[in-house]
Structure formats: C-alpha cells, structure tokens
Design a protein around this nucleic acid. Structure first.
Lengths: 183, 183
DNA sequence: GTCTATATTTCGATAGAC
DNA sequence: GTCTATCGAAATATAGAC
C-alpha cells in the first residue's frame, strides 16, 4: 500500500479512504486489467467481416495492445494463481467491458463453431472443435508476453531481438493459423 | 513460512534451519519447478526420431506432465512476474535438469531450424522461422494450463468438461501443428 | 478530502532447552 | 535435529487534527 501510495505521490491513508482495504484495491485493479485483456477481442471475433479477416484482425489486436501493456498477461495469471477467488471478478470484468450487443459469449462461440463446421463441410478447412481453435489462437497471441523471460532465455534473444521477434510474429502468426485451418 | 510449515506438519523454526531464509526456500522451489518445466522437452526435440514424430511426442509429453502438475506453468509465470531476478535461477534450473549431452540449447535450436528449412526447400513445408515455430508449439501446450480459469470462464467449461477438453487436445494439437507446417 | 501520528496485526527470524 | 517461546520489523489499518 505504501509503495503504491508513494508512486502515486499521495499518502498511504488516502488509499484506505478511497478503497476500504488492500484487498478491495487489488480487486479493483484486477477488474480493470481483466477488462483490458478481454475487451476488444470478443467484439472483433463477433464482427461481420470474413473469417480470415477476423482472424488476422484478432491476432493484430492482441499483439498490438499487449505490446502496449506487456505485463498484463503475466499479472492476470499471477493474480489468478494467488487467489483463485478472483475468477468471479473475471466474469464481471468481462461484462463491464463492452460486450457486443445481442451476443453473449456462449452464443458467440457457437456461431464461430458453425462457421468452422460449414467451411469444413465445403472441403476448405480441416475439422476442428471451436474451443480447441479459440484456445490455439489465444495461446499463441498471449503466452509469449506472459512467458517472455523464459522464451528469451531458451531461444536466446536479447532485448532488441525481442522487438524484432514481435514484428515478425505479427505477420507470421496469421499465416500460420490460416494454413493450419486449410485442408 | 508458517503456512508451509503447517502443511508439512513441522515447526516453522525447522524451515529456517534447513533453508536460511524465506527467499532461499522460494528460490529452491523455483529451481525445482523450472527443472520440471524444461527437463524433458529439450531432450525430446533433440532426439533422432523423425520430425513429425518428435513434434507429436513433444506435445504428448507437455500435456501429460502438465496434467500431473497443473499448477506448474501458473506458478513459474507468477514467480517470474513477482521477481524478475529469478530469470538467472531459470538458467541454472535448466542446466541442472538433464540437458542432452553434446547439445547446448542454442545449437539445438539451430539444428531444428535447419531441418525446417530443408523441408521447406523440398517444397513439403511452408517457410517459418524456428523461434516462431518453437514459441507456437510451447504456447499451445503450456498456456492452457496457466490460463485454465480464464478459458473455462470464457468458453464455458465445467470441471469435467476440462478433462474431456484435454483428452481431445492431446490428439487434435499434433494434427493442427503438422497441418500448419504442410504447404 | 487530505494529512500526521499511532494503534494493531502479521510474519519472518532467532535464542535456547531438550 | 526438532521443538517452544519470543523478538523485532514491516505493513495494514484507524483516529483525529486541519
């Protein structure tokens, strides 16, 4: 608390005036972070562009916003690890952010699944369960930011290499994912 | 410390006898965890089986060992997030684990990259930088465990659904990755 | 609403008997 | 090596003046 107060340039007592306790403050921060993490992505996947375009936009959105907030994934995972009770706050954090009107999350997933199935039936795509596809997409976008230190250590990337890695990833990843879908 | 001592059924003072301080204990735990996380995978990728077989084995290895230690990824990420200084311990944790003899990590990555390039030159695979491929593979294997609560919330999976999800993932993921590589 | 001063709790660490 | 008892630091939270 005092560390936060110091960095904010105010008195520790003031934090307790606005937030009743340390835990209340932590919860508020977590809500905002979760909102940032899930805010835009659902709207993009629910938009009415072509499937390929939506996938590319989703990847770009993730990489661009996470590049601006590189600690977001690590923080959310760490916090969820620290207190599993935060999961409930996650739900409210997601609905607080602008959910596309007329679509709850379950319906959105189902709609995307129907699209994938249709393309598979047309012989264009391989068959793949929606959940698996969504997790693949999110994993490859988000994980690199959460695991940056590990990746840099294992592959051997310096600080400036990391930037180049992300530049390349922005164009390579959509290509990789779309090629994975094509039969 | 007292929480750990209680769960271990011993006295808090005993922990200070074996580990000099709280931080020393935390470091020891982190080292062991990092070893578990990186131990087997490098050896598998360095083995002399066919590329396709090695990829499938890597995925199975990750999913199976993480299923037995589901909190490992979240913990390592959380700890790395808490104290960036742990990165150095990561390096020693990796070499402590059995690194395949005759191969350091950099050489291993380079060798794998040469294989991918050769298959691309033969017209069988698309062209893809090694680091991107390795990160894709690791992301899709590890991230689901680190982000399990989020995934369950977004996609809407109950506890038993999660088990079925992992069963499916074990067979779907190698297929997805190999199809992504094929031209 | 914002500060100073202080109360209260928690927790890591040590001393010392056995 | 393992315990009981306790010290001392640190940090959350509150009281109360302005």
């Amino acid at each position: 608390m005092q560390e936060i107060a110091a960095e904010a340039g105010v008195n520790p007592a003031l934090l307790h005036y606005y937030f009743r306790s340390k835990d209340t403050l932590a919860l508020a921060v977590f809500r905002e972070a979760a909102g940032k993490l899930f805010g835009g992505i659902l709207a993009i996947l629910a938009s009415d562009a072509g499937l390929e375009a939506r996938i590319e936009r989703a990847v770009h959105h993730y990489i661009d916003t996470l590049r601006a907030n590189p600690f977001l994934p690590g923080y959310v995972i760490a916090e969820l690890n620290f207190d599993p009770g935060r999961i409930t706050a996650l739900a409210t954090g997601m609905t607080d952010a602008h959910t596309p009107p007329g679509h709850d999350r379950r319906a959105l997933v189902a709609k995307l699944g129907a699209e994938l199935a249709a393309r598979a039936a047309a012989g264009e795509f391989i068959e793949i369960p929606v959940e698996q596809f969504l997790v693949n997409l999110a994993s490859m976008c988000v994980f690199p930011f959460a695991a940056r230190p590990m990746i840099q250590a294992v592959v051997g990337l310096g600080a400036s290499d990391w930037d180049a890695f992300l530049d390349a990833r922005r164009v390579e990843l959509p290509r990789f994912i779309l090629n994975a879908l094509k039969r």
